[in-house]
Structures are given as C-alpha cells and as structure tokens.
C-alpha cells in the first residue's frame, strides 16, 4: 500500500494534530516503511487461520451490579483544563 500526502493529512485530521509540510514528508516515508514491514505477513498463507484479536485464552470476566463509591466532584474536576462551577467547560459545541 502506497502512502500519499493526502493519507497523512487524513490521519492527522482524524487525530486532531497539525503537521508541517516537512513533517508530512517525513511521515510519508516512515509510515510507508512500517506498512511495508507489516506487509511481509501477506507472504504467508493464512487461509485457514481465524482472525485473532485477543492473545489470552480467557473470556467472561464480568462484575456484579454493585455500587462503588464515586470520587468527589472536586477530584473529578481538578485536572480538567477548564471548568465552570460544577461542570467541565469545553469549547462551544456547534449543534
């Protein structure tokens, strides 16, 4: 798979990061290299191999519907970049 500038821009946009032109060029090469490396897997025959998303053989880790104490509102808000009264404050959401 060939990585183009527009792919880098698309990914940057999804990640909400700004990149300079120079960075874009750098990432085109770096990402291309990574994908080329991963692409080696395609040399193997995986026809009868089921996709695997979990590397340990455990399932059904569930908890009971039991209340646990919350943290205080003060603690909840303390690390927020911006707050107002009892709320987290965020840039205006355009509806």
């Amino acid at each position: 798979m060939k990585i183009e500038k527009k792919d880098i821009e698309y990914i940057a946009n999804l990640s909400r990061i700004e990149l300079s032109n120079q960075e874009k060029e750098t990432f085109i090469h770096q990402l291309s290299d990574i994908l080329a490396y991963i692409d080696k897997l395609n040399q193997l025959n995986t026809q009868d191999i089921k996709p695997m998303a979990y590397s340990i053989n455990t399932t059904n880790v569930l908890r009971d519907d039991k209340l646990e104490p919350p943290i205080s509102r003060e603690d909840a808000l303390t690390n927020a970049p911006s707050t107002m009264g009892v709320f987290f404050k965020v840039p205006k959401v355009i509806e």
Partner: peptide, 14 residues
C-alpha cells in the same frame, strides 16, 4: 449549552 447569547462554551456533566 448555555442560554446566554454569544456564549463561546458548552458545559459537560459526565
């Protein structure tokens, strides 16, 4: 969403 006109913020309750 605050009702005041021109407000440039929203508030969140989690």
């Amino acid at each position: 969403h605050p009702e005041e006109t021109g407000a440039d913020y929203s508030l969140v309750d989690f």
